[in-house]
Computed example of a mutant assay.
Amino acid sequence: MRIAIDSEAILFAFSGARAELEDILRPSILAINEKIIDDYSSKVLKDGAGLGKDWLTRLFSTPSRLRLVSTEEMQTYELDHSDVDQSYVAAAFFNGHYLISPNKNQSLIEKAKDYGIQINDTKSPLEIDNMPGNAIIFNALLNSKTTYRHVIIRHFFANEKNIVIYDRYIKDSSLCLFENILKYCHQNADITIISDFDRNASSTITADAAQKRIKKIRPHANVKCYFPDLKNCVDTHDRHIHLGHRLQISFSSGTDCFGLHPKWSNSECEISVHYLSKSSAVRNYYALTSLTARKPIIIKAYSKI
């Protein structure tokens, strides 16, 4: 998780008073700047021993665990690098928008509000699910300059038993992706694909052809292809893959974004993998078993929202 935390909160967390706060801090990426380093040095890293000092010392020797906010960055956003409160606001501003601090200083509170910073006062309950870096466990950015291949998301499908794919407009490169990633799912998986397929010439791929190609690589899987019910379809441009109650993979553009072998000419797309659980929301997809069907069926999938 990406956080900013002031010196008083560090001392409090490692005093034994808030074990869950200490647990959150240990694996986090911490934002610092010159003024914060001075504050830590005088209050946490001063002579003596302590778990907070040990933790900070280890972090300072591991650059990948730190986000150093420069004076220039602060000046760009009109934050005073000589002011310790504004330094902590800047740290949060550049590292997840989350500041842990028991400081009741009104100027800090007002400045944090001005910059959209959420403050936890160390004694309030911590909403871990909403903390930065918790919900999205993987992210990839593709464009015409990248040549990413399916392997970057393929491992998420290993042994999955329930897969729902929704993309209204698929191309051959989409189906190539599905073939590549679905051969890693459980051999008896339930696989559902919801798409327009060749309806209104949306694609050259028919539902029957898609089903046959997936069955070829996973012959024992239960593969179903449906058409979205346009009367109830409010997600015209959404593209998602739901993996049981574990993960949701969302595509900002089509699932054809990887392109095809051997060039792998990527197109503009952000792929995000979201953590799910059985307490996550349930999404209803209204689908038709055929283009002549009058009554839709409802396909449920665990979802990020």
Results as ranks from 00 to 15, higher is better:
Ala4Tyr: 00
Ala4Pro: 05
Ile5Lys: 00
Ser7Gln: 04
Glu8Asn: 13
Ile24Gly: 01
Pro27Cys: 11
Pro27Thr: 06
Ile32Asp: 03
Asn33Pro: 08
Ile37Ala: 05
Lys46Arg: 12
Trp55Phe: 14
Thr57Gly: 04
Arg58Asn: 12
Arg65Val: 03
Val84Arg: 12
Asp85Gln: 05
Tyr88Ile: 05
Ala91Pro: 14
Ala112Trp: 00
Lys113Gln: 15
Tyr115Ser: 10
Gly116Val: 08
Ile117Cys: 07
Gln118Ala: 14
Lys123His: 09
Pro125Ser: 11
Pro125Gln: 07
Pro132Trp: 01
Gly133Thr: 06
Ala135Cys: 09
Asn143Met: 13
Asn143Gln: 10
Arg149Cys: 15
His150Ala: 15
His155Trp: 13
Asn159Thr: 09
Lys161Val: 11
Ile163Arg: 06
Ser173Gly: 10
Ser174Gln: 04
Phe178Tyr: 06
Leu182Gly: 11
His186Lys: 08
His186Pro: 04
Asp190Asn: 14
Ile194Met: 02
Arg199Trp: 10
Ser203Glu: 05
Ala207Arg: 01
Ala210Lys: 04
Lys212Phe: 10
Val223Leu: 03
Cys225Leu: 04
Pro228Gln: 02
Cys233Pro: 00
His240Val: 12
His242Asp: 08
Gln248Trp: 00
Ser253Met: 13
Asp256Tyr: 01
His261Ala: 14
Lys263Asn: 09
Trp264Ala: 06
Glu268His: 12
Cys269Gly: 02
His274Tyr: 07
Tyr275Phe: 13
Leu276Arg: 05
Val282Trp: 00
Asn284Arg: 07
Asn284Lys: 10
Ser290His: 00
Thr292Asp: 09
Lys300Phe: 02
Lys304Val: 14
